[in-house]
Amino acid sequence: MSRLRIQIGDLSKTFREGGREVPAVSRVSLDILDKEFVALVGPSGCGKSTILNMIGGLIAPSDGQVLIDGSAVRDVPRQVGYVFQKDTVFPWRTVTRNIALGLEYRGVAGPEQERRVAEAIRLAGLSGFEEAFPATLSGGMRQRVALMRTLIVEPEILLMDEPFGALDTHTKLGLHAELLALWEAKHQTVVFVTHDLSEAITLADRIVVLTRRPGKIKLIHEVKLPRPRDVIKLRETDEYAQEYSQIWRVLGEEFAPPEGGSAPLPAPPPGLARAKPALEQGGSADTGHAV
């Protein structure tokens, strides 16, 4: 049994919008173990990014708290790396100088810096683009730079806010494979926010399904797919399809129109077309402590 890494206790966040109080996150409690890969999924606007930002110390909770390694998060915690959905690669720095940023901040210079940056560039498959400015790179390459820039300082905890949300499917799959390979090597604790269920199943150990705004935990689901996972072949397996339909049955309700209509939005799970309809044992896969 791994030790506890992140403890989220009764976490709530209410935003003020023009004098009106808008609850974004409502009483979320979740324990995340060391080396665990957890995905938060839910419809857009359900507060999943808000939860991530509270773990990262970017915004303060209205109520409740986040503990990392037992101490409450106030400012940006030292052991945490964060990958944004938005392109946060510094446009005025070359690939090399972007990846070197974290080392520069920590005073790692000279040959040590060069060696580690070169290694990161090789790992990210960015060889030949060392001196390129981000403007000349594709979206996928830029996000790889952002990922390596975060990983080079070896954070023990990695927070990822829809990091591949803006990319096309093929680029995304490639990056899933790369991320999993990097994660297998270092086993960081990862909290990964996405609205893409297949992405969550491919990557995570546990999937936390959130409700519509204000976000509450609806389901915590353990993904029972063996590792290491092949991101392409995985999608053709029955196990994957089962996982998908189990979660979708719960998540799909959250995508339904807020009132009146009962039909869920047409978002058929990919690969489920082949799946057998006999998926009735679903509930047992839940870990049970859904709110």
Binding site: G56, L58, V76, R78, V80, G81, Y82, F84, K86, T88, F90, W92, L101, G102, E104, Y105, R106, A146, R149, T150, V153, P155
Partner: peptide, 23 residues
């Protein structure tokens, strides 16, 4: 978000000024 990402990479206030705000 550029300032935030610098902070997550371990930047102190002076470093944020030098590497994010001034550029």
């Amino acid at each position: 978000d550029l300032i935030h990402s610098a902070r997550f990479l371990g930047a102190r206030e002076g470093q944020i000024m030098r590497t994010v705000i001034i550029p």
